[in-house]
Design a protein around this nucleic acid. Structure first.
Length: 498
DNA sequence: AAAAAAT
């Protein structure tokens, strides 16, 4: 079960400086601890019991009392550990407890600010916060770009205590003077490592400069690089470090698999794996927006219910894709790293890396999409000869070798007897070397790519299964899945612990 | 190298 070790600070201080939580499963609940033990208000407990939550996860059990004390926290926790509740529950409690502490001119000044790197993550954290606040008078608002700013401005004018935001739109509101951050008592930087990767440091700096110096700050990061430690030293005051599992560790309940294939085999390999394993809920990661869209189109053509999600899609398309995936209407979500972190999709049994990520840390985040909340999962990665360096970086980061397997059955069916790499349906292709064939493949794409990168030529129509697109082997499972939507909706659309 | 994020 959960073991909490505490280390004492340096010789002069007996103050706790770090808590390390070692547990077989980071999301496993502590059966001997209850949310009711933390002195949270009845309104919060009622919201929790509405969702059927009684016992905290280890990071929640460690973080809630510390945040309630008012201490700064550096949390090294992966997604799926219940970290969102770990910070939002005590924040709500603190705001409730000190309701009349500051006599400010504004009736409802922003008192807690939660920053996230992506819009989807902001939306998701906001949904959780809103649910936890359900029975309290506290109001929360999510603020991000890509959507109409007017409703956000109106809500801010009416007054909200808790703002969940991505940095860009938040600064937009600051410039327009539609938000006042001078009363913020608690700051949360969620997925801080991601925010650094994305070059948010200057924005972060500008936002923090607008906050009161006397405030509580919490920072969460799945990985714990030197840069993150530096950021913590800059923005946190005597923080308590709460570490769940080993830094940069991959979930123990995720089985990692590598398949070496040729570059031009990758699309078919993904189709093959999806069909072979009869996957009904899988995220496939690609490194590029265009590659993501292309792969989704390919999968749809082969009868797989797939949709793409990436940063060049409109916010509506992004949300629609995510929603239909959560509802089970879409079985394969093909994504860039926009979806690598934070998204809480319950019970995802498998993720596939169509490309190995350029950034080794992203590997950890991507495969963290599976094996969540104590469940087991598979992380399957395709790699080609030229990916050896990326692979070495990843294995160095996670401090383990990933087992390399042959994609049994696939090579035999896809490789032609004479060693040609691509199956040919017609003789239309000119006879040329292997690399020229790849170029030929690329020429199939509309030329508008380079000139109009913002317009996605591969915009997907909603999937309509037809007798012709549905492979015979898929039919039974599709039929059986039609009986499942209610159950799946309960699983995926349910309340998030993260 | 690429993606993300304000317009």
């Amino acid at each position: 079960m959960t073991e909490i070790k505490s280390e004492l600070n340096s010789e002069l201080s007996t103050e706790l400086s770090s808590i390390t939580i070692s547990t077989s499963s980071s999301a496993e609940v502590a059966a001997d601890v209850r949310f009711a033990d933390f002195g949270l208000s009845d309104d919060i407990l009622r919201a929790l019991s509405d969702q059927g939550y009684v016992h905290p996860t280890p990071i929640q059990a460690a973080a809630i009392p510390v945040v309630l004390e008012g201490r700064d926290v550096m949390g090294a926790a992966q997604t799926g550990t219940g970290k969102t509740a770990g910070f939002s529950l005590p924040i709500i409690q603190l705001l409730l407890a000190h309701a009349n502490a500051s006599a400010s001119p504004a009736r409802h000044p922003v008192r807690a600010l939660i920053l996230t790197p992506t819009r989807e993550l902001a939306d998701q954290v906001a949904e959780n916060v809103k649910a936890y606040c359900k029975h309290t008078p506290l109001r929360s608002l999510v603020v991000f770009g890509g959507v109409d700013i007017a409703p956000q401005t109106a809500a801010l004018r009416a007054g909200v205590e808790i703002v969940i935001a991505t940095p860009g739109r938040l600064l937009d509101h600051v410039q327009q003077k539609t938000i006042n951050l001078s009363q913020v008592q608690i700051l949360v930087m969620d997925e801080a490592d991601r925010m650094l990767d994305m070059g948010f440091l200057p924005d972060l700096q500008r936002i923090i400069n607008l906050l009161p110096k006397a405030r509580q700050s919490l920072m969460f990061s799945a990985t714990f690089s030197q840069e993150i430690k530096k950021l913590a030293a800059t923005f946190l005051r005597n923080p308590l470090t709460i570490e769940v599992a080993r830094s940069n560790a991959t979930a123990e309940n995720v089985t990692q698999i590598l398949y070496q294939v040729q570059e031009e085999e990758k699309r078919d390999a993904v189709s093959f794996i999806i069909r072979e394993r009869n996957l009904k809920q899988v995220i496939v990661f690609s490194n590029t927006k265009i590659g993501t869209s292309r792969l989704a189109v390919h999968l749809v053509k082969t009868g797989v219910k797939a949709a793409a999600i990436h940063g060049d899609k409109t916010q509506q398309e992004r949300m629609a894709a995510l929603e239909s995936f959560k509802r089970g209407e879409i079985e394969v979500l093909v994504a860039t790293d926009v979806a690598a972190r934070g998204l809480d999709i319950a019970e995802l049994p498998c993720v596939i890396n169509f490309d190995l990520p350029y950034n080794a840390e992203d590997y950890v985040h991507r495969i963290g999409r599976t094996g969540r909340a104590g469940a087991t999962g598979d992380a399957i990665s395709l790699f080609t000869e030229k990916d050896e360096r990326l692979l070495a970086d990843i294995e160095k980061l996670i401090k383990q070798k990933i087992v390399r397997l042959h994609l049994a059955g696939f090579v035999a069916t896809k490789l032609e007897p004479h060693g040609l790499r691509e199956p040919r349906s017609s003789g239309a292709r000119s006879s040329s070397s292997g690399s020229a064939e790849v170029k030929n493949d690329r020429r199939v794409a509309p030329r508008s790519y380079a000139s109009t990168p913002k317009i996605d030529p591969w915009f997907l129509q909603p999937y309509q299964p037809t007798a012709s697109t549905l492979p015979v082997a898929e039919k039974p499972s599709v039929t059986s899945s039609s009986g499942k939507p209610a159950k799946r909706a309960a699983l995926l659309g349910g309340f998030s612990k993260s």
